[in-house]
Design a protein around this nucleic acid. Sequence first.
DNA 1: ATTATATGTGACACCGTGTCATAAGTCAAT
DNA 2: ATTGACTTATGACACGGTGTCACATATAAT
Lengths: 210, 210
Amino acid sequence: MPTQTFFHLPKSKQDKLIQAAKKEFSRVPLHEASIANIVKEAEIPRGSFYQYFEGKEDLYYYLLNEISEENNAQFHLSLQENDGDIFEAFIDSFQFVVQGQKKQEHKKIFKNAFLNMNYKIENILANNLYEENRKNNYLSIINLINKKKLNIQNEEELHQLMKIVLSVTFHNFVQIFVKELTEQEALKNYVKQIELLKRGLSNEYSNTSS
Amino acid sequence: MPTQTFFHLPKSKQDKLIQAAKKEFSRVPLHEASIANIVKEAEIPRGSFYQYFEGKEDLYYYLLNEISEENNAQFHLSLQENDGDIFEAFIDSFQFVVQGQKKQEHKKIFKNAFLNMNYKIENILANNLYEENRKNNYLSIINLINKKKLNIQNEEELHQLMKIVLSVTFHNFVQIFVKELTEQEALKNYVKQIELLKRGLSNEYSNTSS
DNA sequence: ATTATATGTGACACCGTGTCATAAGTCAAT
DNA sequence: ATTGACTTATGACACGGTGTCACATATAAT
C-alpha cells in the first residue's frame, strides 16, 4: 500500500504519478518497469517516490487493484442480473472485460499483467487484494449465488467450484494474449469450456448429453 | 536454447554450470536470479556465459524443461497404467510430483517456478517447450486417452477438456506453495476438484449425483 | 606454416536501485 | 516571533548487475 504521505498529496500530483505509472506499466511488465522512467515522466524527484511507495511492486499492485475494481463491480452486477447464475455471470463478465479492454487505456496494462500472471496478480484481479475487502467481497458473492442450480452438497464444494471456475477463467484470459485471439474466438472457447464444466467431463455419471 | 558451443563443452563443465544454475534458481525466482552469482559459483568467466546462453532466461527455461521431463514421462506412464483414464492419470501424476518433490533437490526450484508461474513456465511444464516435441507429445497423449469414458463429442471438445484439467491442475500446484499445504491437504483438494469436474458443476443436466 | 574458424576472457561503460544527509515546509505552544 | 517537533522533499552517491567488445588462445584444415 502507498503511504499516508501519498494520499496527503494534492490530487493533481497523485494523478500525474499514477498516469506516469500507467504509461510505464503499459510499456513493459512489472519486472522490466523502471522507477527511473516513472519519476522522470511524473517530474518528481527519485527520493520522493520512496516516500510514497516501498518500491515499484507496491505501486504496481496498488494500481492494478484500482483499475480492476471496475471489473469486480461488474461481476457483482452480472450475478444479480442473472439471478445468481454464476456461470452466466462469469460469461457476462468475461465478455465485459474482453470487449471493454478494446478501447480502453488499460488494455496494455492488462496484457502485461496476464502474460506475467502469477498468484499475486491473480489474487488482486480475483478478489480485491486488500484485506478487509477480500472476505466481505467473497461472502457477498457467495450469498448472491443461486446454489440450487449447482451440483454441490455443501459450502466446501462451493468453494472448490469457485476455484475451478476461476482457474479456467484466468487461463482463458491469458490465452487471449498468448494466442492473440479475437474477441469472438476468446468468447467461443470460454463459453465452450464453461459448458463442459457445467455438464461434466466424465460420462460415468449418467448424464443425458446427446 | 543453449548454443552449440555449450553442448560441445565437456560434460563436467556443463554439469558444474547446471549445478550452479540450480543453486541460484533454488535461492530466488528467475527475475531475482543473477548471472553474476551463477558464473561465480560455476567458476567460469562472465564472457563465457554469454557464449552458451543468451541470458538467464535462456538458461532457466532450458533447465526447467530438463527437470520437468521426468514428470512428463511419469504422466505418460500413468496414462497407460490407468487404461487411458485421464483423470486417474492426472491424479497419479499430481501425487507423484507432490510427493516426489519432498526429498528432491528440485523442490525449491519448483516452488519458485510455481509462485511465479506465467504462461511460459506453464507451457514448459505442461508440454515440453521445444517445438518438435510439443506436437508429438500432445498427439501421443491424445491417442492414449480412452475417450469412451469422457463426456465429449469430438476432438475439439477433447482439446477444451484438456485445457480445463490443466488449468485446474496448475492452479492446485500453485496453491500448495501459496497456502503452504501439506501433501494430504493438497491431494484432497485436488481429488475433490477432479471429482467435481467429472460429475459436472451444474445440475441442469439431470445428473444422478446423490 | 598459414589461414580460417571456434572458443575463452575480463575489463568496461551503462543503467537502475535504495539510502541517507541535508534542506525545507507546517503548525501548535509559549 | 521564536522555538521545537514533526512531516515532507531532494538528489548525490555507493552498490551491484548487465551485456559487449577487443583481444587472446585453441583447434582444424589446407
